[in-house]
């Protein structure tokens, strides 16, 4: 028997676990970017008290209750409301004037996680007078995150940063108008959710579900490998109306994508793209 390094062994264990996750529960993480995935799985292994990734896999296969717990580890990402205020400023100043020309709008927040980005957009659209003609779709594969997004409750101590971001994004109101504070929590007003559809949707395995005028998908593609990025961007391409907008995270881009030709730079420095009319 040949010696196998610990790292190579761990890589095998990770592949097997991802296969098990897919075969048993149909969650497909096999094309996620490996470095970050490995880090999350090690964290799950250690914090859940397993000695090896294989032991974690056994637990996952035999105890369905483990699924949401593991998904929590695999999909958690920490965002902010109005993260990168200049992005939201660019939406407000350059995208909104185009959106105003449509009688009705559909906006998709893909990979909405706990909802920080969703609430940012609803507030921005309300401030710009677009909320009433817009249907917002907020999707994620993590049911627990979707439930948190739907609840709209954030830790009060984050409000200082969110308020500052909102102001820098060109906010026309005060963020505190939209939430009530109690017991260290900020609960966002339910009226902000009246036009939001929350749905379990996977960029990995699911299909187009509506024609969108804008898609904002920030810091989700960084978790995918190139092949999966191509699938997701293809899905965005097929979901967008002609001349619809796609916004990505500050450090994401379409440069390496197979579908780059279907988009033109709209606000290059903010990673806002426009679907070409063809």
């Amino acid at each position: 028997m040949s010696e196998l390094g610990a790292a190579a062994l761990e890589d095998i264990e990770i592949r097997l676990l991802l296969e098990a996750l897919y075969l048993r529960y149909h969650y497909d993480f096999r094309h996620y970017a490996p470095a970050s995935l490995k880090r999350r799985l090690r964290l799950a292994r250690d914090q859940l008290g397993f000695k090896t990734i294989s032991a974690l896999q056994e637990g996952l296969l035999h105890e369905p209750d483990m699924l949401p717990v593991l998904l929590g580890y695999l999909t958690v990402q920490v965002s902010e409301m109005f993260r990168d205020p200049s992005y939201f400023k660019a939406i407000r100043e350059t995208v909104v004037p185009h959106l105003r020309t449509y009688p009705s709008l559909k906006l998709w927040i893909a990979g909405c996680s706990d909802g920080e980005e969703l609430y940012s957009f609803v507030i921005l659209f309300r401030e710009e007078g677009l909320e009433e003609r817009t249907l917002f779709y907020a999707t994620d594969i993590n049911q627990e995150a979707l439930a948190r997004a739907q609840a709209g409750v954030f830790s009060l101590e984050r409000m200082q940063l969110f308020t500052e971001n909102h102001r820098k994004s060109g906010g026309k109101s005060s963020l505190s108008d939209y939430y009530s504070a109690a017991y260290g929590r900020a609960s966002f007003d339910k009226s902000l959710r009246e036009r939001v559809v929350f749905a379990d949707h996977s960029l990995v395995t699911d299909a187009v579900f509506a024609e969108m005028h804008m898609i904002s998908c920030r810091n989700v593609l960084i978790y995918f490998d190139r092949e999966l990025q191509d699938r997701a961007v293809g899905l965005f391409k097929d979901s967008l109306a002609r001349k619809g907008f796609l916004g990505l995270g500050a450090k994401e881009n379409l440069r390496f994508s197979r579908h780059a030709g279907a988009f033109s730079d709209f606000v290059r420095e903010e990673k806002i793209y426009q679907r070409r009319a063809e």
Partner: peptide, 19 residues
């Protein structure tokens, strides 16, 4: 505001995981 990681395939990866 991003973690910087190196992939075994020798490319750069960023993540938005918790601090």
């Amino acid at each position: 505001n991003y973690h910087l990681l190196i992939e075994t395939g020798r490319s750069i990866a960023l993540s938005s995981d918790e601090p």
